[in-house]
Design a binder for these strands. Structure first.
Lengths: 199, 199
DNA sequence: GTCTATAGACGGATAGAC
DNA sequence: GTCTATCCGTCTATAGAC
């Protein structure tokens, strides 16, 4: 019996988080309020406290879920059988970047919550933060497949791809102007690494 | 006599904007309130309306001032006699980037106001926006000095350098981890451009 | 030109009835 | 578990006295 209660409670929590994403999409991540959120799931604001301790806890749940989604995307990228990193590193890299950029563009509020600090007075709890560590580790694995494992190289890489995403989303959220530079960016990066190890 | 009045009014406006920067530095850009700001200049909140029409107008003034400061920095970069772009394009580029990154790191609130959208429900007025256009034009001039004038090339460049700044400020606001990649980034970019025009 | 007083709105969170 | 009622705080902006 306890089981049943816990399950329903967990489902309602999921419903609330899903509703929160809908509202974030509609009104903006920062404009999310407990009153609106409660109305979206057919409740009144105080009832939400039966499922979350605070508004920050809701952002935490959204943050953790977002990183689990990213980890899932990265799993498929890592397991992609149509591309062999050893055979064509450039195609491997570019394909992964394109999927990551698509993930970012797919939801601006999600992008903001994961990668920027737009929510005032909130930062992920240690618990929620752990999910992001995992996805970062997957990115390292993915880069290692093309022989990139040096910390400085990875820093250069993160600057490059996060710059592409930031520019694309800031200037042209639904466009492809920076996304279409993915091939050039990947090639440029690999050339630099190659030239480096050669010398 | 009218002149005197206008001058003092203009000075008080400047004082208010300077106080706003101090508070943004102390409490965060988003936490700026009219009460705090008025107190910082020895007034009460309503008195500010004698100098600015709204809080948004104050952000506008800060925004425009920030871009004027950046334009000033870029002027000195462009006029630097110790570096000749034709002679050593890489040194020219890297030096400029380092100065731009130093400008960004010098004030995080200023960086946020200029390059991110952290302030809810505010965007620069067309008037304030004009100042940012000017500084973008200067960046184009500066890149043109090393033969980079194609729009796609410039997009790749902005992604690269804005990524460096974003990563540095997000992960290590006072550090140099990404700043120290400036040389590599500039070299990498120039190599890519060269390889491109060669083929 | 600056003040006091306050309008008017919105927000997170809590108490306690049912 | 959900509700109503409400606390308590925040903020921008305006009205009107001095």
């Amino acid at each position: 019996m306890q089981r049943r209660v816990a399950q329903r409670r967990s489902r309602t929590r999921d419903d609330i988080v899903a509703a929160a994403w809908r509202l974030a999409e509609r009104d903006g991540l920062v404009s999310l309020t407990l009153r609106d959120l409660a109305a979206e799931v057919g409740m009144r604001a105080p009832s939400l406290y039966g499922y979350f301790d605070s508004k920050a806890a809701i952002y935490d749940a959204m943050f953790a879920q977002a990183y689990r989604e990213l980890s899932a995307v990265m799993s498929t990228v890592l397991a992609d059988p149509s591309s062999d990193p050893a055979d064509d590193p450039h195609a491997w890299l570019a394909s992964g970047v394109r999927q990551w950029l698509a993930f970012c563009q797919d939801s601006i509020p999600r992008y903001q919550l994961m990668f920027t600090r737009v929510v005032p007075d909130w930062e992920p709890s240690p618990d929620a933060y752990a999910a992001s560590i995992d996805s970062f580790a997957r990115m390292r694995d993915w880069l290692a497949r093309v022989g990139v494992s040096d910390d400085r190289d990875i820093d250069l890489w993160t600057a490059l791809v996060s710059g592409l995403a930031a520019q694309q989303i800031a200037n042209e959220p639904d466009g492809r102007r920076w996304v279409d530079l993915t091939d050039r960016a990947a090639q440029m990066f690999l050339q630099e690494i190659k030239a480096r190890t050669a010398s």
